[in-house]
Design a protein around this nucleic acid. Structure first.
Length: 150
DNA sequence: GCCAACGTTGGC
DNA sequence: GCCAACGTTGGC
């Protein structure tokens, strides 16, 4: 069992949108960065995820979700109609992967990036070390520290 | 809207 | 395989 952090732009797909999808969740798509993809491929059903809102007034963690299936090849990468179409992907080698995620809970308040940076015990957190990574691992210890201030 | 930090691409 | 040019992310 592992923990992860997923970034999303609330203007595109927010925690509210995820909640609205209900218990069947939603494919977490559009990951087009190899490092993020490699983390995504390691995800397992039952893994916990922190949902992070980026490119907004108060960037930070807004709630939790749950991985509900095995990662699978991203069908959008092969679909020319999709905005996530990748001309270099083939049926044999799709390059990109998705995983279904469902809403678990909204936190009483956003734990902002600013708060995370000020918190002790999070110095080595992937989110803070590498700002532009949209899928990153969260250790058990980091999860405890963060949920204790949620 | 700016720009720093990276990732990707492609010529050589 | 190097590296310059370019594109993207995302905080501010």
């Amino acid at each position: 069992m592992a923990n992860w952090l997923l970034k999303t732009e609330p203007d595109e797909f927010s925690l509210d949108d995820l909640e609205a999808k209900g218990p069947n969740g939603e494919p977490w798509n559009g990951i087009r960065n190899y490092q993020a993809r490699n983390f995504l491929k390691q995800m397992q059903p039952g893994d916990r995820v922190l949902i992070y809102h980026s490119s907004c007034a108060v960037p930070g963690i807004v709630g939790e979700g749950e991985v509900i299936g095995q990662p699978y090849a991203d069908p959008d990468a092969l679909n020319p109609e999709s905005k996530y179409f990748d001309p270099k992907s083939t049926a044999d080698n799709t390059r990109w992967w998705v995983v279904d995620v469902r809403f678990k809970r909204r936190w009483p308040q956003t734990v902002s990036l600013k708060t995370l940076k000020q918190q002790t015990g999070l110095d080595s957190m992937a989110l803070l070390r590498q700002g532009r990574l949209s899928v990153s691992p969260v250790t058990e210890k980091e999860w405890e520290v963060i949920s204790s201030i949620a």
